[in-house]
Design a protein around this nucleic acid. Sequence first.
DNA 1: GTCTATACTTGGATAGAC
DNA 2: GTCTATCCAAGTATAGAC
Lengths: 226, 226
Amino acid sequence: MAKSGKASRLMAEGDLRSAPVRQALVEAAIETLKTDGFSGASARAIARRAECNQALVFYHFGSVVDLLLAALDSVSTSRLRHYSAAAENVGTLAELVEVATTIFLEDLENGYITVLAEMIAGASSTPGLGLEVAARISPWKRFAEQVINSVLGGTALGDLIPSGDLAHSTVALYLGLELLSHLEGNREASQALFEHAKRLTVIAEALGAGGMLGAVAPVPKEEQET
Amino acid sequence: MAKSGKASRLMAEGDLRSAPVRQALVEAAIETLKTDGFSGASARAIARRAECNQALVFYHFGSVVDLLLAALDSVSTSRLRHYSAAAENVGTLAELVEVATTIFLEDLENGYITVLAEMIAGASSTPGLGLEVAARISPWKRFAEQVINSVLGGTALGDLIPSGDLAHSTVALYLGLELLSHLEGNREASQALFEHAKRLTVIAEALGAGGMLGAVAPVPKEEQET
DNA sequence: GTCTATACTTGGATAGAC
DNA sequence: GTCTATCCAAGTATAGAC
């Protein structure tokens, strides 16, 4: 699944200034993944949307999957930049939930999570694609873990569940909510969840401040992480 | 997306006694969805696994998608029966989490959720499929809501989040965890989450018994459900 | 770099023999 | 009910003109 084709030998990795068509193809691939899914994202369908010839997919990217991975890279890095900027102002649990809500609904609206979900599901049919997609998820997980740590680190709540596991399930929940919202067409159901989370936040902080959680359910020694 | 083909006119809906090939095709479709995903589940691939001719897919089911929907129906009803049986012994929150853990890991191991996840993701590319898949998810949601109600109904925790929203996010979490586990090949990360849930259960019940939750964060009137 | 043309493959679906 | 044979559409990928 390594980069192949003539273009990759002639062009530096991040060189997007030249080759306007290359960028157009990436944009079209993102859009096609959103609306037609993985199995609908053919070279022809993408090229049609980019208003260029089908052969250019192979000239610039070597294969369709490599173009789709470039598309995933594009949304992934751009979204991660956005997330990081928003997370800088986060100090408390309440602020974390507030920011997470905003960003999730934003992504849901724009279909960015769809791109990821479709690539994950599509990886089943294409040998080797799974590893590539997994590699592109880990930055998201690391980021989630880092933010969770910065908010819950040292608190009773943070001791209850390791940040790595929380990050894992956060990514999973985002993916699942996206799948359902996309399928059923109602983002209200997912939106409601975040409203409840905000309310629960109040409780968690009140309990955490009193140090009551630790008294009720101390963490077993062998499960504590470094 | 209504049933078509000669067979459906000649055979009653649930008639699986006759037509052993029909059942073999459904089994093969399930297996193919698990290992090759939606876009890998072609009539030829399924027939190869069922060790019969490709034309039989169209004779018995009219089209490939209709066979895939029959496969989804099969796992859905069989799993729902299994869930219902297990849920009968559930009375407390701790028991609910225990049962949910067992069943989730079972499904994860056997790939039953994969079938659903692949059909959801695949629905993007096939017009009309989304509605069919959505209709097959609602029983799962109703069941989850019912179980949640039977455990949390009337408690402070039950008042905090409507059972419908909890059911929605439960299904979403299952789907997301399945996607990640399948992709990364480690079900340990998902398994850990349920271990934490068990520990949190202890806290929730201790707090619920004392009626402390309601005191800390009373539910706004306008958000209470019937 | 971009296009046309084309070779090749796979998949959905049907007709007709048995 | 099951098979063979076949048609047709769509997709990947390459060669070569411009």
